[in-house]
Each structure stands twice: as structure tokens, then as C-alpha cells.
Design a protein around this nucleic acid. Structure first.
Lengths: 186, 186
DNA sequence: ACCCGCATGTAAGTCGTTACATGATTCT
DNA sequence: AGAATCATGTAACGACTTACATGCGGGT
């Protein structure tokens, strides 16, 4: 099974969801380090069901289209449990901005500095958003967040990665901009 | 033109290189935030030449196969310069380990802690490697590293991103492992 | 009247990886 | 003798994105 399958199972392990629900979640929550569109999710759900990892029941709705609600099976759970502790293949992060930085010596320093300040801002905002979620979690779910067997702990752990990532990114962007500006007016 | 094209131009802007040379570089240097295999690089070089961004001359070698050495053209340079200051499309980093963290509440905490300690070690090693390069650059190229119009500055900037990234990653892995262990023997 | 949200799919196209293919020289 | 390095390409396959396709109900 591929990673996307486990991403879906990871969400279904917490609650039963429709393809549509999954699509919404995959641009937020986990989505900050993994994302997918509905065109990937629907076929993958079919494959997961084929493999016996999930089942679905049709929920009829008035005034809304019917939906298929997917539930993880025992086999799905144990496959997921197994996967979690397997070492992942080495990850080469792709980041276009770092690539741009690598050629920044060719650019107009003023334009470049502006770019990096803008990017810093973007990451500052994302960081603020994460910090808000963090505060909320600590206040409202302080108990669960400390229990290693609680989904809240896991969500909190993923969130912390996001916070560290964005903090570091913002810092770096500002450092690059600083250097460029120092060079312009020393 | 796609990102890979600019990655190649970025390297050729510093020195003329063969496809083979480029292949080697694309698993190191820039490669820490962008990588490619030779099967991608050779066709892309052909496309770049088609577009007038690079030219090549054949260098005959005794006791080695002949090679094509590629050089960036004036059009190539100006296209690269333009690209550098254009804001990149929003980046959704994909990271399987964070995904695993998200489902870690299901796993055996002992196994999971071991996994995160191992990953922490991996990033610690990568960090040490980066720090070494950094020290070397500051000592041997201290002058150039401060000039915003020097390729050394750009390389140093990209390196700093690597350092911050790895430092943050190691810290996070250890934090996750700490929490799991605290939960096992409080 | 039109757009948005809910809801589920398929098809075409792009980007990247793995594998196929070849061949000389140098190191072990 | 066999593996590793230099050197350049193509082909098959997989993952992901964008676009195509449909349809109802509610809000502006």
C-alpha cells in the first residue's frame, strides 16, 4: 500500500468519514505535511475497500446527496499500526524558494529582499495560526494531549512539527532579507 | 519553463558542466532541497538548448568517453535572473514521518520512541555535516559569503536553510521520543 | 438567475522514479 | 575476474494535478 492509503487510514482511525469529508481534511490538519485532492482520494478509497482495509455504508440524506461513509476495519487498523513504526524512506524535501536563494546572487538585491520579506510574512501568519491551535489544544485538551495513546497527543505532535518548521522558515527568510539589505545600505 | 530547468540553469550560471556533472551535483549541494536523476536531467538539457537557454560543445577525452559541456547563454541568464525574484507557488511539504506521528497513538510506544530516536540521529548527523560545511565556508570564503552578488553568499544562504531545517527536525524527533518515554515510565 | 456547497466520480496530462541499454577504463 | 566510475541516453510506470462531468438544494 502507498502512503496516501495510510494517510486516509490515519484519519479513519479517529472517526468514520465520507470521501468528501476526507477531501476537506486533506487540505488542513494532516494536510500541512501531506495533502491530496478528491480525484486521488476516491480511487484510493476504492482500492482500500478492495484490500479489506475499510468498508462503507451509504447514508441517505434529504436535501443533500447521499454519501458513502467509510469505516476502518480490524485489518486496516493493524496495517496502520504496523506502518507507523516502520522507518520511512529517506525524505528529500523539495523547496523552490531555497532553489531561488541559491541563485539570488544574480538578482536585484532590492527585489530579492522584498520577496524574502513577503515569504517571511506568509510563514509568520501560518505560525500564528498554528500557535493559536496549540494554545487551544493545551487549554481544552490538556489531559489528552499528554496521553501517548490519545489521538490528541498525535495531532499535537504533528502540530508541533508545523510550529518548529514555520518558526525556522520565517527566521531564515528574514535572515536572507537582512543580509541583502545590509549589502544594499551597509 | 519548469523548476528543474531553473535548477539546472542555477548550477550552470556558476560554471559550465556536463550532464554527468549536473547529475552528481543534484544529489548534494542544491540537492538538499531539490534533487533529480540523470534520466530527468538529459532530456531537460535538450529542452533548454532547444529554447536557447544553454549551448553545448563536445569535449573529447582520451581514456574517458567524450562529454557534452553545457554553458548558459545570455537568454538563459536573464530568464534565471527574472525567475529568482518571482514568488514561488505555495509549497505543501510532504513528510511521511509527520504522517506517522499523526497515527502514533495507535502504536507500541516503545517501538515508536525507538523510531523517533533513530530519525533524530539521522538529522543530527546531517546537521553536523552542514555545520562542517558552514565552518569551512566561513573560514575559507568569509569575504565572498557576505557579498550578496557572490555565488558563495547564495550557497551559504541555502546551507543555512538546511541547518535550521535539520536542527528543528532533530529537536522535534527528540521531543516526540521524550513524550513517548515519559508516558511509558512516568 | 446564478453561484456556492455538498457529493462522487473519470480522464488527460505532468513530473518524477525505476528500469532498460550500452560501452570504455580504472580500481580491487 | 568483477565491480566501480565515467558518460549518455530511452522506456515504462507510478503519483499527483488539472480539467471534465453531473446534479440537487440553498442563499443572494
Amino acid at each position: 500500500m502507498k502512503t496516501l492509503g495510510y494517510a486516509i487510514l490515519g484519519l479513519l482511525a479517529q472517526e468514520s468519514l465520507s470521501g468528501y469529508d476526507l477531501t476537506q481534511l486533506m487540505k488542513g490538519r494532516v494536510g500541512n505535511f501531506w495533502s491530496a485532492r478528491h480525484s486521488q482520494i476516491y480511487p484510493e478509497l476504492a482500492r482500500l475497500e478492495d484490500g479489506g482495509y475499510v468498508t462503507h455504508r451509504v447514508v441517505e440524506q434529504r436535501e443533500r446527496p447521499d454519501k458513502k461513509v467509510y469505516e476502518i476495519t480490524a485489518e486496516g487498523l493493524s496495517a496502520l499500526r504496523e506502518w507507523v513504526t516502520q522507518p520511512p524512506p529517506p525524505n528529500v524535501p523539495r523547496d523552490e524558494l531555497v532553489l531561488k536563494a541559491y541563485s539570488v546572487w544574480l538578482a536585484d538585491p532590492e527585489k530579492a529582499a522584498r520577496l524574502f520579506r513577503e515569504e517571511a510574512l506568509r510563514h509568520k501568519e501560518q505560525l500564528a495560526h498554528y500557535e493559536e491551535m496549540r494554545t487551544w489544544m493545551e487549554r481544552e485538551r490538556g489531559e489528552d494531549v499528554r496521553r501517548a495513546d490519545s489521538p490528541w497527543f498525535a495531532g499535537y505532535a504533528a502540530l508541533r512539527r508545523g510550529i518548529i518548521y514555520e518558526r525556522g522558515y520565517e527566521e531564515w527568510c528574514n535572515w536572507v532579507a537582512d543580509q541583502l539589505e545590509k549589502y544594499m545600505h551597509p
